[in-house]
């Protein structure tokens, strides 16, 4: 795999605020990197530096082999970028706007026509081509923004919150589009939708207060969750307190969270004390107790939980109600 984006020790400050503090990472062709972090963590600032909009105070950025600080024009030519909020020239029609982009990007005429048709078809813009962008709905505006980022078939794609403002169907469409292109491009998407990371990303970086605090596949990150290897059992007809007591006694269980979800129905989440599997032990116990079990399964871990615990330094143990829901 060839590395298309290489960032080394990038820093940026705005006055007293350190927005990005020594961020380094690489993205290779075929990778979809999810860039996660709370608002104000430095995601957008990092993306703006990679795309050459902001100059970093320190560090190096290389895109498709071009140094962004020394040859920004060549680097920009290789990038398709959807800025935060998808700003567009509102007084232009969607068609005129896309033609303007291919012109300024110097796409040859025949190729531009082909790519224009592709983008219009793929993002479903046929019906709005002659409408001025100001009159479009938020979803269509976002799609025009995506078309603009994809129209020159860049090998590096940087999308700042690409599905923000889209309805679930449109989100699905955009995600399948990203998956479809993933093999031949290096893609970075920022998002705060964790489901999106599961749906499209091959790797995720979590950034907090300008620093990278986690870097791994979504599976690896989820494994850091206390829900990793936790066992979920829903039992009918047994009192909550009895259940908690019985299940808490199983070897390897560090904590039991219970939640009454209906009359006589209790859902229990059993956390593993050392992250190892509990399924065999719990299954044996449940069978021997002769309970009526509605649901039984293992959790793989929750990205959301990891995200919260590393970005706001949440204590590992949370309220029981929340844990079992």
């Amino acid at each position: 795999m060839s590395t298309l984006i290489e960032i080394d020790n990038l820093s940026k400050r705005f006055g007293a605020l350190i927005a990005v503090d020594g961020v380094s990472f690489k993205v290779a062709r075929g990778e979809v990197l999810g860039f996660l972090g709370p608002n104000g963590a430095g995601k957008t600032t990092t993306m703006r530096m990679v795309t050459g909009f902001l100059k970093p105070d320190a560090g190096r950025i290389s895109v498709s082999g071009h140094d962004v600080l020394e040859d920004d024009i060549a680097a920009k030519a290789a990038i398709g970028y959807l800025p935060e909020g998808a700003p567009l020239y509102g007084d232009m029609t969607a068609a005129a706007f896309l033609h303007f982009i291919t012109e300024t990007r110097g796409v040859a005429r025949a190729r531009a026509r082909e790519r224009f048709d592709w983008a219009v078809e793929r993002l479903g813009l046929q019906s709005v081509l002659q409408q001025s962008i100001d009159t479009l709905s938020k979803g269509y505006k976002r799609r025009v923004g995506l078309a603009q980022a994809l129209i020159h078939d860049p090998e590096v794609l940087i999308l700042d919150e690409p599905t923000d403002g889209l309805d679930p169907n449109q989100k699905h469409e955009v995600r399948s589009l990203i998956n479809e292109m993933a093999s031949e491009k290096a893609i970075v998407i920022s998002t705060h939708l964790l489901e999106e990371v599961d749906a499209v990303c091959s790797r995720a970086i979590i950034i907090s207060q300008g620093r990278i605090v986690a870097d791994g596949t979504p599976m690896e990150l989820a494994a850091r969750s206390r829900f990793h290897n936790a066992v979920k059992v829903t039992v009918r007809g047994v009192a909550e307190a009895d259940l908690a007591k019985a299940l808490g006694g199983i070897a390897g269980v560090s904590e039991v969270a219970t939640d009454a979800i209906g009359t006589d129905v209790v859902r229990c989440t059993l956390f593993s004390s050392n992250g190892t599997g509990l399924l065999a032990e719990v299954s044996r116990h449940v069978q021997s107790s002769n309970w009526t079990v509605d649901e039984f399964g293992v959790e793989t871990g929750r990205l959301e939980d990891v995200f919260r615990s590393i970005t706001i330094g949440e204590p590992e143990k949370k309220g029981q109600k929340e844990a079992a829901s």
Binding site: K76, Y81, P83
Partner: peptide, 9 residues
């Protein structure tokens, strides 16, 4: 931001 991230000086 859109304009300045196009390959335009």
């Amino acid at each position: 931001e859109l304009l300045m991230t196009l390959p335009v000086s």
